[in-house]
C-alpha cells in the first residue's frame, strides 16, 4: 500500500481544482435532486419561504405601482409647481425660466413672483392688505404645464428639474397625488422593515429544515471528519441545499405576488377608470430577481449558521 505513485505537485493542484469543481457540481446536482427525492419536507420549506417573502414583496410592488399611478395621473394632468429657493434674485429666476425652455416636454410655463404670490394669498384669505414691511417669505414659483401622455418622460423631467440647485421643491398635480406618493413611500418603508423581519423568519424556517437534515446525517458527518474532511467540504452540500430552497422560495414568492396582482387588477382598474385611465398591474421582473436573490442569500446564510454551529457542537473540526 505504501508504494509511491504519488502525483507531482502541479498535477495534484490541477486534480484538486478539478475535484473542487466536481464536488460543487455534485452538491448542486444533489440539492436539485433533493427536490424530487424528499419532496414533502423540501417543498413545504420552499412554500413557507415563498409565503414569508411574498408579503413584503407584495407591499413593495404595491408601493411601486402607487408611485407609478401617481406619475400617470400627474402626467395626465401635466401640471407641476416648481418652488425656487426663497430669496432667489430676479435675474436667477429669469435664467431658470430660460433654462426650462430647453425641455421640449414643457408646453408653457408661468412665473408667480413672491409679490404676486403674496397678493394671491391675501385674496384667498380675504384680507385686503397684508403687512409686507417684513421680508416676503414666499418663494418664486413657476407653474409648468407639460405635454401629457408619457408618465416616464414626465417623471424624468421632474427629476432633472429637481436636480437644479435653485429648486427647493416640486409639487405635481393635486394634493391627492402627493398623498398617494406619501402612502407609497410609507408602504416602501414598511415593506423594507417587513423584509428584514421576515428575512429572519426565513433564516429560522430554512435553519429548522437543515437542522433535521444534519441530525439525520450526523453519523456521516462524523465519518467525514474522521477521514479528514474540512469544515468547508462538509458544509458545502448544506449550503447548496439552503441556497436552492431559498432561490426557489424567492421565485415562487414572485409568482404568488403576480397571482395576487392579477386578482387585484379588476378592482384597481375600476377606480382608475374613474380618472379616465387604465392600469396594467404586474410583478416587475426585477422584483422577482430580487426575491430570488434574497431567498438564495438567506437560505445560504441560514445553512452557514446552522451548519457551523452543528459542526462545532457535534464534530471536532
Amino acid at each position: 500500500m505504501a508504494q509511491s505513485t504519488a502525483p507531482n505537485k502541479s498535477t495534484r493542484r490541477q486534480s484538486a481544482l478539478g475535484a473542487w469543481q466536481s464536488h460543487h457540481q455534485h452538491c448542486l446536482r444533489s440539492s436539485l435532486w433533493r427536490l424530487v427525492r424528499r419532496p414533502l419536507g423540501t417543498w413545504a420549506t420552499i412554500f413557507a419561504i415563498a409565503v414569508v417573502l411574498a408579503l413584503p414583496g407584495f407591499l413593495m410592488t404595491l408601493a411601486s405601482q402607487m408611485k407609478d399611478l401617481g406619475g400617470v395621473f400627474a402626467a395626465e394632468q401635466g401640471q407641476m409647481n416648481i418652488y425656487l429657493k426663497p430669496g432667489t434674485p430676479p435675474d436667477s429666476v429669469h435664467t431658470f425660466t430660460q433654462w426650462l425652455k430647453q425641455f421640449p416636454l414643457i408646453e408653457h410655463s408661468q412665473l408667480i413672483t413672491p409679490e404676486q404670490g403674496l397678493k394671491q394669498l391675501a385674496e384667498r384669505l380675504n384680507i385686503s392688505t397684508l403687512d409686507t414691511r417684513a421680508n416676503n417669505p414666499l418663494p418664486p414659483v413657476i407653474v409648468v404645464q407639460a405635454r401629457a401622455n408619457n408618465a416616464q418622460a414626465y417623471l424624468e423631467l421632474q427629476n432633472q428639474i429637481q436636480q437644479n440647485p435653485q429648486v427647493e421643491s416640486i409639487a405635481t398635480g393635486g394634493q391627492w397625488i402627493e398623498r398617494l406618493r406619501k402612502i407609497s413611500s410609507f408602504f416602501n418603508e414598511l415593506s423594507s422593515w417587513l423584509l428584514a423581519l421576515f428575512g429572519l423568519t426565513v433564516l429560522f424556517v430554512v435553519g429548522n429544515t437543515l437542522r433535521l437534515e444534519l441530525e439525520a446525517r450526523r453519523q456521516e458527518l462524523l465519518l467525514m471528519a474522521l477521514i479528514g474532511a474540512t469544515r468547508r467540504y462538509m458544509l458545502r452540500p448544506l449550503l447548496y441545499d439552503g441556497a436552492v430552497m431559498g432561490l426557489f422560495g424567492g421565485f415562487i414568492a414572485g409568482g404568488l405576488i403576480n397571482v395576487l396582482l392579477t386578482m387585484l387588477t379588476a378592482p384597481i382598474n375600476a377606480i382608475a377608470h374613474e380618472y379616465g385611465t387604465t392600469l396594467s398591474l404586474m410583478t416587475p421582473a426585477s422584483l422577482v430577481l430580487i426575491l430570488g436573490a434574497t431567498g438564495l442569500g438567506l437560505g445560504w446564510l441560514s445553512a452557514q449558521l446552522i451548519g457551523q454551529n452543528f459542526l462545532r457542537r457535534s464534530v471536532q473540526v
Binding site: P7, A19, H23
Partner: peptide, 26 residues
C-alpha cells in the same frame, strides 16, 4: 464499521480520497 450503508462499496472506500481532492482516475 461506520460505513455509508446506502452507498456502494466503491464510494465508501473512495471517500477519504474524495475529501482530499484527488483526481477521479487516481
Amino acid at each position: 464499521h461506520h460505513l455509508l450503508l446506502d452507498q456502494t462499496v466503491f464510494n465508501n472506500v473512495a471517500l477519504p480520497l474524495q475529501v482530499t481532492g484527488y483526481d477521479p482516475a487516481l
